[in-house]
């Protein structure tokens, strides 16, 4: 019998705890495949964050350190700065973690041109804690802490993290991708691979923002959720490369 498809070596055999229809699993797979294809699995240290992906250290088949809420870019900085030059360090963070409590850490990691890869999974809500409003929650979106829907007067406007980080000189590669159909998933894979290659080439800070679904907390079916990404999220969070600078910032190290 010929094997036509198999599990990536970048992931362990552990069954994930993610809800049915959640696209975290897809993003995990894309990262795992990338590490395998680039042949860096043994040289990689991942940093898990706080939120639904807190247990990602069970799933990625490489050394993993689990960081405090929002602090993954600081922990990754500590790792990257002391490890041998050939080591790859990435963080895997959600939007509550990165865009709210950890905004300071990610902005300054980008500003320093920290040669790490950040995988930023944006599903416009706090998942693990039960569906509260995130800085990325869309206007009108109902959550546990915006039960009438997010309104501009009380809660302000959603943050476009990728656009913001793209303004920072130290950021080398910033792209926003999505998981709502196969074509987008293929694009997401390419972006993630670019972001890791960038680190191999010592180009500095790379981040891929991945629009992701949360059927459980959105109160939608998995299929409706993918549609919701396309119809509601993509218009506010347009897809594409926001920054791709070829300047090598790692020289000084």
């Amino acid at each position: 019998m010929k094997v036509v498809f198999e599990r990536t070596k970048g992931l362990t055999n552990e069954e994930t705890h993610y809800c049915p229809g959640c696209t975290h699993g897809i993003v995990h797979r894309l990262v795992g495949e990338t590490l395998e294809e680039l042949g860096v699995l043994e040289n990689t240290v991942g940093v898990a964050s706080v939120g639904c992906s807190v247990l990602s250290y069970h799933y990625f088949n490489c050394d993993m350190t689990q960081a405090a809420h929002g602090r993954a870019p600081a922990v990754a900085t500590g790792l990257k700065r002391v490890l041998p030059q050939d080591r790859i360090v990435f963080t895997y963070q959600g939007d509550g973690d990165l865009a709210s409590i950890g905004m300071g850490e990610v902005v300054h990691a980008a500003a320093r041109g920290e040669n790490i890869t950040v995988i930023f999974v944006n599903n416009a809500i706090y998942g693990m804690t039960g569906g509260q409003m995130a800085p990325t929650t869309l206007i009108g979106q109902r959550t546990a802490t915006s039960p009438q829907g997010r309104d501009i007067q009380s809660h302000g406007l959603p943050i476009r993290v990728s656009e913001m980080l793209a303004t920072i000189d130290g950021a080398s590669y910033i792209e926003r991708v999505s998981t709502h159909n196969v074509k987008q998933v293929v694009r997401a894979k390419k972006a993630i691979k670019n972001a890791f290659k960038n680190q191999q080439e010592k180009k500095g800070f790379s981040m891929v923002e991945v629009l992701s679904s949360c059927p459980t907390n959105w109160g939608l079916t998995p299929e409706e959720s993918l549609q919701w990404i396309e119809e509601q999220m993509v218009p506010y969070y347009p897809l594409g490369i926001l920054k791709n600078s070829s300047v090598i910032t790692e020289d000084i190290r």
Partner: peptide, 16 residues
């Protein structure tokens, strides 16, 4: 950028 970041960088470096 802050004491919070500094201690977490220590956490990362110590992990290594």
């Amino acid at each position: 950028e802050s004491e919070v970041a500094a201690i977490n960088m220590v956490y990362g470096a110590s992990s290594a």
